[in-house]
Design a protein around this nucleic acid. Structure first.
Lengths: 215, 215
DNA sequence: GTCTATACCCTGATAGAC
DNA sequence: GTCTATCAGGGTATAGAC
């Protein structure tokens, strides 16, 4: 039975995920991350060199994991029509296990890659790339005719990411009684996901089978 | 001919929009905003009291403006089917005139309303509220049957906001030769918007006229 | 590999003259 | 209303002992 590692850079990364998600790159405090990860600052710097180094390591781990999941689907045996659904499910599952991910993604998009080196940016870019690979057979079969892969990527994941990331904001608004139910009745994450999946099925169905709203 | 105002809190807000969009709340530097707005720090504090006060004033102006545009559509004469299209157009137009808006919105969602007071949060919440009001007649007519207004809101605006806000990140990736065209051929903003509008038309078409992907 | 104590810079905010 | 000079606090990072 091997001894468990006592240092655990992984635990630091977990703490970093929380902190960077909640406060952003500039707002994150190395002290907080160290305390939450139960190491002292010196140890953190010993492992990651700098705040920036820590941030990059975190992003590589985070985006790397989800890209790997998507790549597995891309090279899997599913039929063209089921692949999008599988991608959405994988994405949602990843968010459920990594609650900090949506916030980090939104912030990094807004940040424009300022703190990233080429390797880290490649890890981030691997996500839309894997997504495009998932769609490829369907595009060739005409199932997703005419839609650019990058369009499909944003149309698919942006609503999910923003809805989940906005949970704290919506909770605050509800708490402060700003329009008690925000818009009409409350909505659960599950109900939202169902709406999204249905919308995507319709949006990306082959053109021939769909009524055109405009010519 | 009236003398032009020499103080111009508006110019400060313009500078603040740039800075907060580019660096986020914590990353923004009051010095930078003052310099870009061509006032000194003391003047800035004289007008806005604090960094937080400035941020709140900026959000009220930004979200207030777009909410007003949407409210005009909501109380306008358009038929139920055209209202969504008008909302999207208004949104896109607003982004074109206020290039910093998408970034600020993403960051504020991730921030979870931490720096906001009740008034500012109400201004932010007015946007989805106006959007729901735009959709209301269509929902009652069965055009958007079954989709929760908040779902429709995120499904509609999230792709647009994230695509536009991700432009710098995508530019960086392209510049560093990370998968030269990211995914397949390049895509223009116009092409993306066309894809989105088409997807939305399909996604929110009345159920009866659409082929169901799953039972 | 681990920890304590500290250097040093940056930044939000203000005092006080005009 | 406008400006210059400055302060106090908090932040990243490291030195150096063990």
């Amino acid at each position: 039975m091997p001894r468990p590692a006592r240092v655990s850079p992984d635990r630091i990364l977990d703490a970093a995920a929380l902190e960077f998600a909640a406060r952003g790159y500039a707002g994150a405090r190395v002290d907080h991350i160290a305390r939450r990860g139960r190491v002292n600052k010196a140890m953190l710097y010993y492992h990651f060199g700098s705040k920036q180094g820590l941030y990059r390591a975190l992003l590589r781990r985070t985006f790397g994991a989800i890209a790997a999941d998507l790549q597995a689907i891309a090279s899997g045996p599913l039929d063209p029509a089921s692949r999008l659904d599988a991608a959405v499910s994988a994405f949602v599952r990843h968010i459920e296990t990594h609650a900090h991910f949506p916030s980090i993604m939104l912030r990094e998009v807004a940040e424009g890659g300022t703190h990233l080196d080429a390797d880290t940016m490649a890890a981030v870019a691997a996500v839309p790339q894997a997504f495009a690979a998932i769609l490829k057979p369907g595009v060739e079969d005409g199932v997703f005719d005419g839609v650019h892969p990058l369009s499909a990527y944003f149309i698919t994941i942006a609503p999910i990411v923003m809805f989940v990331a906005s949970a704290p904001l919506r909770a605050q608004a509800a708490q402060r009684r700003i329009s008690p139910t925000v818009v009409g009745r409350r909505i659960s994450t599950d109900a939202f996901m169902a709406d999204v999946k249905r919308a995507l099925q319709r949006a990306f169905a082959a053109r021939s089978s769909v009524h055109q709203g405009r010519s």
